[in-house]
Simulated scan of single mutants.
Amino acid sequence: MTSTRPPSMADVAARAGVSHQTVSRVLNAHAYVRPETRERVQAAIEELGYRPNRAARALATARTKTVGVLVTNATFFGPASTAFAIEAAARAEGYFVSIGSLPAYDPQTVRAALDQLIDQGVEGILVVVPQREVMDLVELVAPTTPVVAVAARADIPADSRIRYVEVDQALGGALATRHLLDQGHRRVVHVAGPAGWYDADERAGAYTRTMGEAGLESRLVPAGGWAAADGYEVGRALAAEVASGGPTAVFAANDTLAMGLLRAFWEAGLRVPDDVSLVGFDDIDGSEFLVPALTTVRQPFDEIGRAATHALLWPDAAQVAVVIPPVLVVRDSTAAPAPR
Rank of each mutant, 00 (worst) to 15 (best):
R5A: 13
P7D: 03
P7Q: 02
S8G: 07
D11C: 03
A14T: 14
S19G: 13
H20V: 12
S24K: 01
V26C: 00
V26H: 01
L27A: 02
N28W: 00
A29T: 08
R34A: 15
E36M: 04
A43I: 05
A43T: 11
E47D: 12
P52M: 12
P52F: 11
P52Y: 14
R54A: 15
A58T: 10
A60L: 13
R63Q: 15
K65H: 13
T66W: 03
V71Y: 06
T75K: 13
P79L: 02
S81F: 03
A85P: 03
I86C: 07
A88D: 12
A89K: 02
E93P: 07
S101L: 07
R111P: 04
A112E: 11
L117A: 09
L117Y: 02
Q131F: 14
E133A: 15
V134H: 01
L137Q: 14
E139D: 11
P146A: 01
V147A: 03
V147N: 07
V148F: 00
A149K: 01
A154L: 14
P157S: 01
P157E: 05
A158S: 13
D159Q: 12
D159F: 06
S160V: 00
S160K: 03
E166N: 09
Q169V: 04
G173Q: 06
L175P: 10
T177F: 08
R178W: 07
H185A: 01
R186F: 04
V188K: 04
A204R: 14
G205K: 07
L216Y: 02
S218H: 15
R219W: 09
P222N: 04
G225A: 13
W226D: 03
A228R: 10
G231E: 06
Y232R: 12
Y232K: 08
R236S: 10
R236P: 10
A240F: 02
E241I: 06
P247Q: 09
P247K: 03
F251I: 04
F251G: 08
A252K: 05
N254L: 02
R263I: 10
F265P: 07
E267M: 02
R271M: 00
P273I: 01
D274Q: 13
S277Y: 00
L278K: 03
L278Q: 05
F281N: 09
D282T: 09
D283K: 03
D285R: 12
S287D: 08
E288T: 12
L290H: 09
V291H: 14
T295G: 00
P300D: 02
F301I: 06
F301G: 08
D302R: 13
I304L: 15
R306A: 15
A307K: 13
T309L: 07
A317G: 15
L328M: 04
S333Q: 05
A335V: 01
